[in-house]
Design a binder for these strands. Sequence first.
DNA 1: CAGACAAATGGTAGCGCTACCATGAAAGGC
DNA 2: GCCTTTCATGGTAGCGCTACCATTTGTCTG
Lengths: 342, 342
Amino acid sequence: MTKPRSRRGGGRPTIADVARKAGVGAITVSRALREPGRVSQDLRRQIQAAVDELGYVPDPNARALASARADVFGVLVPSLTNNVFAEVVRGIYDSLSDSPFRIQLGNTHYSGLEEERLLQVFAPQRPAALIVAGIDQTPLSRKLLETAGCPVVQVMETGPDPVDMMVGFSHFDGGRTATEHLIEKGYRRIGFIGARMDPRSQRRLAGYRAAMEAAGLFDPRLITTTPVPSSVTLGRELFRDALAKMPTLDGVFCNNDDIALGVLFECHRASIDVPKLIGIVGFNDLDMMHVSFPSITSVRTHRYEIGTRSVAMALAAIAGNPPERRIVDLGFELMQRESTAR
Amino acid sequence: MTKPRSRRGGGRPTIADVARKAGVGAITVSRALREPGRVSQDLRRQIQAAVDELGYVPDPNARALASARADVFGVLVPSLTNNVFAEVVRGIYDSLSDSPFRIQLGNTHYSGLEEERLLQVFAPQRPAALIVAGIDQTPLSRKLLETAGCPVVQVMETGPDPVDMMVGFSHFDGGRTATEHLIEKGYRRIGFIGARMDPRSQRRLAGYRAAMEAAGLFDPRLITTTPVPSSVTLGRELFRDALAKMPTLDGVFCNNDDIALGVLFECHRASIDVPKLIGIVGFNDLDMMHVSFPSITSVRTHRYEIGTRSVAMALAAIAGNPPERRIVDLGFELMQRESTAR
DNA sequence: CAGACAAATGGTAGCGCTACCATGAAAGGC
DNA sequence: GCCTTTCATGGTAGCGCTACCATTTGTCTG
């Protein structure tokens, strides 16, 4: 004599309960919720009333199973704590907060293998879209993306061969622009300091090198890098290494702002005048760069916009309107500040 | 004559395909995957072979629907970019990366209403556990947590009345300890500077006030706060405001490290000697605090551990071994540095 | 006004998996 | 030796929803 419906789970109302209460078929309730335009206004109102009264919320799992399509955006980033990716992710969340889509976030830890593993976990869920950081997927990852059967957006960088869509900017150009700025300002022995040399860092380094070579200033001993994850502490240490190796150093292009801040602090500590003796350029333009003393020149990137834009493109593609430009370059801006103003 | 199975979705292998190939019943495959101990070794091997050959991956949606329980951890944090929460989330991700559990991350934007909304989205998914930041849930949120039917861990803070479990520390004590340190060092006109005065900030402020009152030093004009989100820029501005209001200020307890850094930069800019004229204490102890010049005294909190510990507790509860201590206080450490060394 | 066609609604049959119960075989108790 | 208890396995019946197709009604053609 127990209610048949309560066999498992709780007694949460189902679509059938709503249908009964509204005096319609279950499928009509389903339609009223998903494609209101296809249900007459009268029924729509009745159904809405029943939904409200019962507090009905569709079960996303049942929906995904029946429609072979989950309302999920899969998002893969290499780090959760790196401010750069956190901003991108924030843009994605904000853009999706009013939509029916949920987000499945994966942390690849800068590992191609981990990315493959996560993609293999995400794919079976038949996500509505996939957003992945970077353009250097392994062959398997690339294949998984291509066969995922949903819009795919590669973010952070632009490159020649998108899986589907791309939103980002050229790290090579960013690195070159930063370096050219130092050269223009009269710095000559310009070092490159970088940690966690991921593919984007490598391309910024390549941009640095191109600028230095074009000016006839390149010297491999000016480059100081490490695979260790980036931090302000590390910036300080690498700068000390660089200076020990190359005492005539008069400028540094830092792979990111954490490093740049570490360099600045070390200059303070060692009483090295910035920008007189050493010019400093960072990358990303975190909030603190314009507040520090001296303020630090940096390459501003549009991280939040990368997130919002990638969602907009994916949403358009889902709606059947794939954007005509599959590659969106959001560019960057060189923010000139006191650290290079001599 | 089309294959009946390919009506919708793709032709991904199902449990029935594996069962057929291994020559066993579907339910045995299901068991072999979830409770290997209950299947004989022979069948287990056959099934594993079939799984590998077909590349079978269970459909999490079907599993969730059938078992009325999703392998999902719901995680609610007020911000994705605030390093503090990013570290907690990283701890959660790292702890769960080798488990079958996925993570559903929600951003409440420091809003109780948004938290309610997200909880109403999460609950229908019947998550395996819920981890929420803070202890100041609205009555509705609290009820949703209590009736979620899964382990719940409130993180970041400790308090008297957990919904289920708690991992954090006392922000009141943290604020008091920081302030007492400044008093001990001989600072007297000690200001409090805080942005985005969320409940945790409020409690740090209360700790500050308790310490100041105990020393007979309290003056409400020493307090400078704003509801605006915290940033280094804001730290600088608030410090200028505080100084304008109270020129005799000789110390500041900053609600967090961003603010503290802004204060330090402004001191540099205005040639105010730290720690001689002004003592600075931050909160959270970000990496940069020990690198800055002068290095900044801060209250170290164990953010990553809060994440890993909360997962460990939830996992134990899921396994049927709820921890005996439902409230875990991870404490904090005062890191004394140059900014208060006079 | 018949015929064609669209719009609105409903019934049926799964989606892929697991809870529940049943079955048969092996193992143990007296 | 019979009966109970375990263990290993399988069959059936859904979980809550939507794709597909059928049905009904109203609306437009000529």
